[in-house]
Design a protein around this nucleic acid. Sequence first.
RNA 1: GGAGAGGUGACGGAGUGGCCGAACGUGCCGGUCUCGAAAACCGGUGUCCGGGCAACUGGACCGUGGGUUCAAAUCCCACCCUCUCCGCCA
Length: 427
Amino acid sequence: MYDLRYLRDNLDSLREQLAARGADVAWDDLRKVLTERKGLAAHVEQLRHDLKKGSEEVARLKRVGQSADATMAEMKALGDRIREAEEGLRGVEERLEQLALRIPNLPHASVPAGRDASENVEVRRWGAPPAMTWFPRPHWELGERLGILDFERAAKIAGARFAVLTGLGAKLERALINYMLDCHVDRHGYREMVPPFLVNRASMTGTGQLPKFEEDLFHLRDDPYLLIPTAEVPVTNFHREEILDEQTLPRRYAAYTPCFRREAGSYGKDTRGLIRQHQFNKVELVSFVKAEQSYEELERLTGHAEAILRGLGLPYRVMALCAEDMGFAAAKTYDLEVWLPSQGVFREISSCSNFEAFQARRANIRVRVGQGKKDGKTEFVHTLNGSGLAVGRTLVAVLENYQDADGNVAIPTALRPYMGGLDRISA
RNA sequence: GGAGAGGUGACGGAGUGGCCGAACGUGCCGGUCUCGAAAACCGGUGUCCGGGCAACUGGACCGUGGGUUCAAAUCCCACCCUCUCCGCCA
């Protein structure tokens, strides 16, 4: 979401800079509506001014005991005109908002150009894929053999794209959540949070899910709540409509939540296994920082997500997403991709983004700077978030990378304290 | 789900139709005083949109949205939220 003044003054250059990213934005309508709004607003304000003066005149006349009937009649007529003008203005503003809310964020200068995932740029790589002399089993095979993953019964209970973790599988999931949270909270200094998993439309609009991505979300039939697709939504909106103290920044939060995604439009993709589910667990990191610190913070936050993969000994690479592969709200994104032996590929396990002021403008999250002076001004904060990590996919990576020739799975050392000292899951 | 109370600026708290963007107090900022500080005293202190180089100026905002009225923080309606009690649950 852009500032309307900025939008009016920079429409052409913005359109140019967004290029293909803003291809589906109704630029010409936008220009028309912007000028229309400005004229209407000025008109309404003038009328309201006249009404105010007239009403004051009525009060004055009555005070001195004169008849105010003429002025009152005049003002009554003016009131009707105002109502009419206001209605028109309201309509224009609504249209403007619907248009403006669909403009994606501008990629940062350091973002590589490119059309799709094939043009993402590898930034660095860590760890070596484990040497396996046997044919690596996919995680669903390992999981079902070990009795810790049940897709069939999940389909019975709910449907496709759901899973049941049982026994040591459930425990391993819980161990991963706790390991991640402890790491971020105790070592990296994040404040732990358990937010609502259902949110209202204003929150979804604040972080950018609405209005454009309505069909990706689960809705409730009888209540105005939506299921969160990521903890980014409730945690970022924690400070919606707030003016933060400069000294309290950066604010860093870590939250574990389940995430719910309809995965509409992904039919046929990743249909087996845990990779793409309607419900999955994630530990999310969210930062609120001053504008000048946000790129430093992006590196830092990405590093914190990487620390989990290193701690677990999982090989991964860091990808800088190209302009058109980034999400709607992001100015810059790094994806962390973990090595999956069964597929012989790296798969996304974390996405770390700087949204700059894009979400802050939508959600109206500001900071007061130059405090103490009476010229203390407010400016928008920059928001960032990243998965630290997607828990289900981490479990997949552990199963696959730590399997042995018999299909048993070793527990990474760092997780053993969370597994009651267990060092291996065997059939 | 039922009954009641209430939502005003950073906070406490006035305000039941006009001169109220809002008394007063606290906090905060600046100043006087002081070796320094505290106290005391004086002054200042909301956000957003528009016009202006600026001083300044027009408009909006007292939970949200409608309505009544020449005029609404104040009256009416709906909704949301908070608190208390009952019911139900974890």
